[in-house]
Simulated assay, not measured.
Amino acid sequence: MADRRKGPTVCRNIRPLYNFEPPADDDEIRAAALQFVRKVSGFSKPSQANQEAFDRAVDEIAHITHHLMDELTTTAPAKDREVEAAKARARSAERYATA
């Protein structure tokens, strides 16, 4: 559940993709789409009977995400990937620190 004081949280495996320098590439968008489909379907690897629907959902979500990234606008400066990664490592170290 989201901590309302800090704002909504995102599933740890799905990373924000917008307003980064360099911009999110096709592989990052597809990975996020795959994580989303895995999360909502409950499958990490679907059965053969569900594989086609699973793959189609990943393709469609990746496609729509590309459109979303292309249409969003902001006046905020782009975030630096290395700086954001360092912040994430610091949060992780704090979260998993031993007492």
Rank of each mutant, 00 (worst) to 15 (best):
L34M: 09
R91S: 10
V37L: 01
V40T: 13
K39C: 10
H63D: 13
N13Y: 02
T73E: 14
A85F: 04
H66T: 04
T65H: 07
S44L: 12
E71V: 02
I29Q: 06
Q51R: 12
R15L: 14
K79H: 11
R56Y: 03
A32M: 09
A32T: 07
V58Q: 05
I14D: 10
A31D: 09
V58P: 03
R38T: 04
S41R: 02
F54C: 05
A62G: 05
A53F: 01
R38G: 05
S92V: 01
E94Y: 02
Q48S: 11
F43N: 05
D25W: 03
K87N: 09
A24V: 04
T9I: 09
P77C: 00
R81A: 05
Y96S: 11
T73S: 14
A78Y: 11
S92K: 15
H63N: 07
S92Q: 14
R81I: 03
R5L: 13
D27L: 01
A85S: 10
E71T: 11
F43C: 05
M1D: 14
D25S: 09
A97I: 04
A2F: 13
R81V: 06
A57D: 08
N13T: 08
A2P: 08
E82Q: 13
M1L: 12
R30Y: 14
Q51K: 15
I64R: 11
M1W: 10
T74N: 10
D70S: 12
N50M: 05
M69F: 13
K39I: 09
I14C: 13
H66Q: 09
L72Y: 06
R4W: 15
D26Y: 06
F36Q: 06
I29V: 14
F36W: 10
I64F: 12
S41Y: 02
I64T: 13
M1Q: 08
K6G: 12
A33L: 01
S44Q: 15
E82T: 03
